[in-house]
Amino acid sequence: MSRIQIVLIIVIALMLMRVWLRYRSGVIVKSQFLWWAALWLSGGLVVVKPETVNRLADALGVGRGADVVIYGTIVLLFFLNFKLFSKLVKIENDIIKIVRELALKSQDDKRETE
């Protein structure tokens, strides 16, 4: 086993532990836990047995297994980024609603006390 494999396995083990702890403390729900665990476990599989992605690369017509991983990762990152952006817009819209309601509400209070 090469040094990079050992480093990556340690990193992945730590990430899996984090995911587990997040799940146990209730920060993420079961479906989220399973998704993240599956993601890191498949990463672990690729590190331990790189030839698995080579087969996938051949099937897809991509030169090397490592390239398949990189392409897949980029697509995944774009997807997560989009989800995050949508979530931010939603949160911003919620904040606007709350702040607006507060602004209009405090005016009503003031009128009543006048």
Binding site: I95, I96, V99, R100, L102, A103, L104, S106, Q107
Partner: peptide
């Protein structure tokens, strides 16, 4: 002026909307 306050900065568009709502009320 009738003065409303957003407790955090939201932007001009949001401020206009709040003001228009008040004006309609």
């Amino acid at each position: 002026a009738v003065t409303l306050r957003h407790i955090v900065n939201l932007g001009q568009g949001a401020a206009l909307s709040t003001g228009i709502k008040r004006a309609l009320l």
